[in-house]
Amino acid sequence: MEILVCVKRVPDTAENEIEINSDGTDIDRDDLVYSVNEWDNYAVEEAIQIRDKVGGTVTVVTVGDDESEEVLRREMAMGADKGILLSDGAFEGSDGFGIASILKAAAGKGNYDLILTGAQADDGAAQIGGMLAAMLDRPYASLVNSIEVVDDKTMKIGREIEGGNQEMSEIQMPCVLSIQTGINEPRYVGIRGIRKVASVDIPVHGAADLAVDASAAGSAGAKVKRLDYFVPELGEGAEMLEGGMEEKIDKLVELLKAKGGLK
């Protein structure tokens, strides 16, 4: 089976405090720790497991800049066979539709039976997989948390829905699935694994190679534009307990007693 997995390099929100820069045009990107989008790791792991069962290849692709190459290498160290970087100044300012259009062009250069994305990335929009599927006219399912290959044409999949219940369906291939965390346990990638793929060639494709035009991608084609980042005026929020550890604990114990938090 030929599998394409779309991944993204994102600031690691578990590792960073996100601050907005002084003019509100971006977040403060100095000293940010980046990693592969959490959901994408599960998608790549799933692709590798499917390939190991039924044969084929796993290709990872990302739309990004030179630095995005590191996430492709990381996913190749996990076991993906190939990486493709889609990079061009003309892609800057793309909205979700633009990113999906670029990925569609890249998908068209291969012959993929299955395309996976993470369920969502750092902007929380959860949109690329569904858009890509519709552009390619392929069936789609979001938030997939189990995959069973039935035959060349069919898969049985589970979608995670509200309350942790699972919606089981049969889907025809070729198709696009967005992957939810918890579907598997992504393997650990050590520094040695990364070194092994350090010199593997990763092709870079721009707008011209992909025949993506300005009406589809980039800021000119974007109907959705981020205007700024801002800090909202919020309510008072929590009453913050101050002082040293002991002081905080004393205050908390009093509060817990009053609210029925201690038995």
Binding site: P11, T13, E17, I18, I20, I27, D122, D123, G124, K223, V224, K225, R226, L227, D228, Y229, F230, V231, P232
Partner: peptide, 13 residues
Amino acid sequence: EFAGMAYTHVSVD
């Protein structure tokens, strides 16, 4: 964006 750590205004055509 960023797991609720930043707010943004977005213009939609």
